[in-house]
Design a protein around this nucleic acid. Structure first.
Lengths: 205, 205
DNA sequence: CAGAACTGACATGGTCCCCTGTCAACTTCT
DNA sequence: AGAAGTTGACAGGGGACCATGTCAGTTCTG
């Protein structure tokens, strides 16, 4: 059974495999984001996608590879949303921080599955942790850049800029974990406002 | 085969089971802290402890229960070390923060297995995450208390005090993850100093 | 229309680990 | 010394999931 090459039901071969891949990713997001990693088995994901295991291997080498792909899809969406919010915000520290943070929080709360995948389940396996860690590092880098453009020479010098940025992104994820779990008696505004304040305070010399 | 009740090789029954439990915990710390959660199977832990699976069930209901116990043992050690450092430090903000943070960092670097268990592997399963999260909350609470005794009326009001504390403990774990993995080009002093500064800055109105 | 590709449902073997059970060797107590 | 408790080594059933295979039915192509 080689790769399919012919159209079927009016759909080309490449489009069919692409569609199946997308279905698997959607099913993966659904299972991982609602039932968690322990339940996110190949069989369960295939069942939810209404596809056979054979089509799993058509697009992914194994379970981990799909889960990483799911996570990266969410991460990419976050990155896109946040950079868009950064671009749209007035070039003033508090406003910029507020815009970026609330765009992030909105994304995670609008679709709780993405929130859970991005923040909770992304620490389940070694491979996922590795990617999560790497992406958090990229976000920290983004924050470093922003700090320097916002504050210029008043920004922290290296390596304190990066240390502070890591402290901030890591803290934000833990904070949101607690908040999304309902363990923190605080409003959305208190969360974003306090976080933004902490960022602005911490990013200057 | 009920619970053992007689001495054996000069050791009482309760002491023997306690010893086996301790051996299993030590083996669990070793495997979890060096090979990671995926390898931390009951069989592997029993093999390292030189005990049979039967003695596993003597002290623990299953794999998860032992791993949680391992984590809590490390957490308890951290709590003890940090509160001792807090008590010994001069009652001045920067000195207090420095003392607590470097005590924490020392513990994690002196025994890297504990570092990995406390920070990395503690997010592996749902049960572990739950405990980890809960304990991070307790540390945040500790920070809140410290802030109020250190800064008095100048400390942040609720819920901003707690938000900031969660932001800080979460950030510290992520920061140390990156640093312990060697991905951060910074010295131990830069880490503790920058973290302490961020805490002191963030904890006041 | 006939043959080949494609699809979905299902089956099968394999692996790993959990969990229980057996048994011989050793220690303790009577 | 003999009976009973304790220990370590190992065997084996059971379950979950992975990975591959079979097969009938449908759709396309020549």
């Amino acid at each position: 059974m080689g790769s399919p090459t012919r159209p079927y039901r009016g759909v080309s071969a490449t489009e069919r495999t692409a569609r199946r891949r997308a279905d698997l990713l959607a099913a993966g997001l659904d299972v991982l984001g609602t039932l968690g990693w322990e339940q996110a088995t190949m069989t369960a994901i295939c069942a939810r996608a209404k596809l056979t295991e054979r089509y799993f291997y058509e697009s992914f080498a194994g379970r981990d590879e799909l889960l990483v792909a799911v996570f990266e899809q969410v991460a990419e969406e976050i990155r896109h949303t946040v950079t868009a919010a950064l671009a749209a915000a007035p070039p003033e520290p508090m406003a910029t921080a507020r815009a970026a943070i609330s765009a992030f929080v909105d994304l995670l709360t609008d679709d709780p599955r993405k929130g859970r995948v991005a923040i909770v389940e992304s620490a389940a396996t070694a491979l996922l942790r590795q990617r999560r860690h790497q992406i958090l590092g990229e976000f920290a880098e983004l924050i470093v850049t922003q700090s320097h453009t916002l504050f210029g020479p008043a920004a922290l010098p290296a390596p304190r800029d990066r240390i502070t940025a890591l402290l901030f992104v890591g803290g934000l994820t833990e904070l949101l974990t607690a908040w999304l779990a309902g363990e923190l008696d605080a409003t959305r505004e208190e969360i974003t406002e306090t976080s933004a304040t902490q960022f602005v305070r911490g990013a200057i010399r």
